[in-house]
Amino acid sequence: MIAGTDFHAIAERIEAVAQDITPAEQKVARELTTSGMLAGFETVAALAGRAGVSGPTVVRFIARLGFLSYTDFQKVLLREMEARSTSPLSLYHRAEARPGTLLRESAAAFSACVTETFRRLSVADFELAVAALSDPRNRILITGGRFTKLHAEMLYLHLFQMRSNVSTLLPGLQSRADQLLEVGPRSVLVAYDFRRYEAETVDVVRRAKERGATVIVITDPWNSPAARYAHAVLSAEVESLSPFDSMVPACALTEALIAELTVRAGRKGRERIQDLEILREGYEWHEEVKPRGRRKKAG
């Protein structure tokens, strides 16, 4: 790989060159992204056949991504795929390696991950997400997985205070697929999906896209398969000192969305929050209760 190449994932590299490649190379890019990069493990000839292009076109496209050879590309892709499927058990050595030192190291580690998240963040995708979520004509649905539903619920609780027509899309009395019944072109789906990606979340995103919804996927640097259906992809770092992926950068990214959406909500958002504050005061008992007079003792 060319030294100094600064993209974290192959999907990011493809996105970075998308505006500069030829129509034939776009076909190769499409085959890679729509297959979740699995097509990249095939031979040059096989990938070229899938894309309907020549072998040299595939090789040129791979070179545009910053790789010296197709073999080099496949080695990096393999490492990336392994990282995407990493489990807490396989990372358990992190906590065992430095007992007693993690508290001191945590501040620097989390700060670095948050900084890297915002450095790599696509400003265009962030703006698209904010525009879609702040449009009062849109219906907002927010979903997440086993752990990331915490982010989904946090975003929902804040958006609910600013605007109407917002709800979570989480398992309950109805499946998440059933809850897509009224989704259409005026719907916006925000989906959180991080590595060890959930097939159900990917399927919900795909179905929402097919029904005309605007889809925003918040994921890790390796990109959930759901990202291939997204109009905007916001990536957050996950590196941590424990065996478990850090939720801190994704939380910071969610808070950045909330901050911008608060500003966009303007006067109407403020008035809605004021109404909520009135409701939250509860009701006060105003009836005056007069003390009973003491009975006089019988003389």
Rank of each mutant, 00 (worst) to 15 (best):
residue 275 D to G: 06
residue 275 D to T: 06
residue 273 I to V: 15
residue 262 T to M: 07
residue 250 A to H: 03
residue 240 S to H: 02
residue 265 A to Y: 02
residue 251 C to P: 00
residue 257 L to K: 03
residue 258 I to K: 03
residue 244 F to M: 11
residue 252 A to G: 12
residue 239 E to A: 15
residue 243 P to I: 07
residue 261 L to C: 04
residue 250 A to I: 02
residue 270 R to M: 12
residue 254 T to A: 08
residue 274 Q to S: 11
residue 247 M to F: 08
residue 269 G to M: 14
residue 261 L to H: 05
residue 238 V to M: 12
residue 272 R to G: 05
residue 267 R to D: 06
residue 253 L to D: 00
residue 242 S to Q: 14
residue 252 A to S: 13
residue 262 T to H: 07
residue 269 G to C: 11
residue 246 S to D: 08
residue 238 V to S: 05
residue 278 I to S: 05
residue 245 D to G: 09
residue 244 F to P: 02
residue 269 G to V: 10
residue 241 L to K: 15
residue 246 S to G: 07
residue 254 T to H: 01
residue 247 M to L: 06
residue 255 E to W: 08
residue 277 E to I: 11
residue 240 S to E: 00
residue 251 C to N: 11
residue 271 E to T: 06
residue 255 E to T: 08
residue 239 E to H: 10
residue 240 S to V: 02
residue 264 R to D: 03
residue 268 K to D: 08
residue 242 S to T: 15
residue 255 E to P: 02
residue 275 D to E: 12
residue 271 E to V: 02
residue 260 E to A: 15
residue 248 V to I: 13
residue 271 E to Y: 09
residue 277 E to R: 15
residue 262 T to G: 10
residue 255 E to Y: 14
residue 266 G to I: 03
residue 254 T to M: 07
residue 277 E to M: 12
residue 257 L to T: 01
residue 256 A to P: 01
residue 262 T to N: 09
residue 256 A to V: 02
residue 276 L to F: 12
residue 256 A to E: 04
residue 250 A to L: 00
residue 253 L to Y: 01
residue 267 R to I: 05
residue 237 E to V: 07
residue 237 E to P: 04
residue 260 E to H: 13
residue 273 I to Y: 09
residue 245 D to I: 10
residue 245 D to Y: 11
residue 260 E to F: 06
residue 257 L to P: 00
residue 249 P to L: 03
residue 243 P to V: 14
residue 261 L to W: 04
